[in-house]
Simulated scan of single mutants.
Amino acid sequence: MSPPSQSHTVRPRCPRCGRPVELCLCHLLPNLTPRTEILVIQHPDERRHALNTARLLVAGLSNAHLLIAEQLPPDWVERIADRGWRTELLFPGPQVPLLTAAGQGDRPRRLVLLDGTWRKARKLLYLNPLLQQLSQVALPEGLTSRYRLRKAPATGALSTIEAGTMALQMIEPETDFADLLRPFDALIDGQIRAMGEDIYTRNYRRNEL
C-alpha cells in the first residue's frame, strides 16, 4: 500500500507585515502618522512576492492603505475623485513636475503609488482612467536604490517602500521618515543570509561596484 500523499503546507503569515510568522518584521515597523495619506494600489500578481515592500510601507503608517486590485472598486473611485482632497499620482514621465512640500492651509493631501513591475504599473494606469486624470508628480532623478537583490530596470528606479519614504520626506521635511526603511533593510539582509555570501557576491555585489 502506497503512503498517503502529503498536501502542500501553507506557512502561516503575520497579518500585519505579511511575512511568514517565524520571519515577522513587525518589531521593526514604526507607527508614523504623517499629514499626507498614502494609497498604494498593488497589482494582484505582486501580492505573494517574497519582497513585498508595499505592505511594509503601509504597515508602518497609521494613515496608509493597500488596495490590491487591477481596477478601482466604486468606493475608492468616489474617494479619489473627492475634490476636497489634493490627490496626486507619484509616477514618472516626460516633463512631470517634481513633488513639492505641502503648503500651509492646503486641502488634505493624498499620494497614490502604483506597486508592480513597470509593465504592470502602466497597466494599472491604463485600466483606471481616474488615475490618468490626477496631477502627476515625480521624485528627483539620480536616486539610488538600497534594493541590493534587484537589478533595477532603469537608473533611479526605487522599490515602493523607498519611493514612498522619499516622497513623504519631501512633502513633510520637518519629520524624519527613515524608520520606515528599517524592516526593508532587515528583509534584504535576511535574503542575503539565506542565499549565502558566495552566491550574493557572485550575482549581485559586483553591481554595487
Rank of each mutant, 00 (worst) to 15 (best):
R79M: 09
A59I: 03
D75W: 09
M195E: 08
C24T: 10
H43A: 10
G164C: 01
C24G: 12
L111F: 06
A101W: 05
P12F: 01
R35H: 13
K151T: 14
E78V: 09
V40C: 13
A50H: 12
A157K: 04
N63M: 00
R205Y: 08
V10A: 06
W76H: 12
L180C: 03
R35A: 13
D115S: 06
H8E: 11
C26M: 07
Q136T: 08
L139Y: 06
L111D: 04
I188G: 03
L187E: 06
T165D: 07
A81P: 02
R11H: 10
L124Y: 11
A101G: 12
L124N: 03
G190W: 00
P4F: 07
G156V: 09
A194L: 13
R13N: 04
D176K: 02
G116S: 12
R205V: 01
R107Y: 01
T160M: 06
G18T: 09
G105N: 11
K120N: 13
E141V: 06
L67D: 09
M1L: 12
R19E: 13
A59C: 10
P4E: 06
A157P: 03
T117S: 15
C17R: 01
L149C: 05
L180T: 02
A167I: 02
G60W: 09
L23E: 15
D176A: 00
L23Q: 15
F184I: 09
R119C: 00
R146E: 15
V21N: 01
G93V: 10
N203W: 02
R55T: 11
E22R: 12
P129V: 10
Q6Y: 03
A178L: 03
P108F: 08
R119N: 10
L66S: 08
P74V: 07
G156W: 07
L89S: 00
H65A: 06
D198M: 05
W118P: 04
D179R: 14
I188D: 08
